[in-house]
Write a protein that binds this DNA or RNA. Sequence first.
DNA 1: AAGAAGGTCAACCGCTCTCTC
DNA 2: TGAGAGAGCGGTTGACCTTCT
Length: 331
Amino acid sequence: MGRSPSVENGLKKGPWTPEEDQKLVQHIQKHGHGSWRALPKLAGLNRCGKSCRLRWTNYLRPDIKRGKFSQEEEQTILHLHSILGNKWSAIASHLPGRTDNEIKNFWNTHLKKKLIQMGFDPMTHRPRTDLFSTLPHLLALANLIDHNPLEEHAAKLQAEAIQLAKLQYLQYLLHSTAPVNPSPNSHFGILERDSLNLLNLIPSIKENPVSNSSLMENQTQFSIENGISQLLHQPINSSPLPDPQVPFNFQTPLNTEMGQGSNNFTMVSQEDNPPNSPWIISSGSSSTLPPLIESSTSNPGDENSPSSYGGSASSWWPELLFEEPIMHEIP
DNA sequence: AAGAAGGTCAACCGCTCTCTC
DNA sequence: TGAGAGAGCGGTTGACCTTCT
């Protein structure tokens, strides 16, 4: 493994021999490493100090833990990576006996691939923007009973995604059900019923705290709890104009029709969206279903604009079934 | 059984950060 | 305050290993 031995500037490179290891260990045990640059000469090694430091910290240190990563360690890495990103040394500091190099390798060879296979962006830990192509994963994860750490992590993220979509739609409904003088016979009554039904879904977030820890620890990411709190404290008859305090961006005209049939949506990449919004689903070419969110960054016809994906809302959000077309008025 | 393809991981490279003078 | 040296970090490489065909 490693590289073939070579000599550059009189210094040896490549794999370490047992003799070299022994010299390095004996020297450090006796004198400490001191200056790494000076160490090779003092230890009688024909290596550069950097190579010695790497060999010691990644392989020879007595407190190094070898062997397979446990499920607990795997879970920790996933969790920390979702917060810290590729800060391997920072992640390693939370895993006694594991080196940054080892964790980095484990990530690149195992976890990253698994996340990709499950439809997640390994950098953001969010479902990839092509939501409809990853729908099968999403649905499969909903039925997970296996408590594999990765699947658990994935399930949390997917649950978070679904709950976020629900929250977005709920807020849309709250805005759209803002009657000045509600009448029991008006269409608003139906929409209020839908809103209440949606509100009933919310406790599932509290009961099943999705990625709470990571979201809470990473203040730059959207917090579901904050979203709920803000949502539930918002007056029902609030202005239909977007509330800057609410992390969703509702600028959708409300003279759209809730109904059946396929609808096109555009998933807008996370990078294009406000920092508080993990992603945005914007309206696409069809208007038979109210857009969940109108994205200001979406520009149909523009080549650089996000791609459109066909799909029906009820297929990716099975709990929200529209039994009858409901018209609602422009506030 | 043998070659190909893909996976693994130790080690290197180059950049950045921190410390000292 | 700026320059230089040393240390640390993340990305990449490439030889060996394992699995597949």
